[in-house]
Amino acid sequence: MSHFQLSNPADGNSAFDFMALLGRCMGNFKIIERVIAAFRDVGANDLNQLQSAMEIEDYGAFVEIAHRFKGAACNVSAIGLSSLLLQAEQSGRARDRAEVQRIMAALHLEWGYFKKVVNVFAPELTNATHGLVEQSRSNLSEKRHACSSC
């Protein structure tokens, strides 16, 4: 594990690879802030949607959300989350209710830990000052960071 990979104390696995994200954002901290802010927002929503899909046993929706969430987690180098989401996707496909429930519990824990870790690099600010302009997902091209300095 690299010096900049931070592990989740619950399981000792890597939660976040900052250097990988830095490279992917071309060393630009403003981009990192934007991306993490977006991921905090979208991730929380996806996690809620996953929970709902699990509760009503809509495995089709569960797999679709897990796949999308996994892509986002990979991109922000959230290693722990992307690994769990891959398992979630596979268990959802297999319609394995018990495994899906186990993974969901782990996902909630990992999500909480990830938020703490990334707060070191990109502190979470209130939506009023630094959040994303909330618009429809269907209009991504107009979804822009609210902070004009970015």
């Binding site: 977006a38 999308r68 969430f69 091209s141």
Partner: peptide, 22 residues
Amino acid sequence: DYVSSLMLTCCLEEFGYEVTTV
């Protein structure tokens, strides 16, 4: 995925492209 789309957009704009996302 909005996050992936945002990262792509940021990179492409850095490279000088004009980006539209759907």
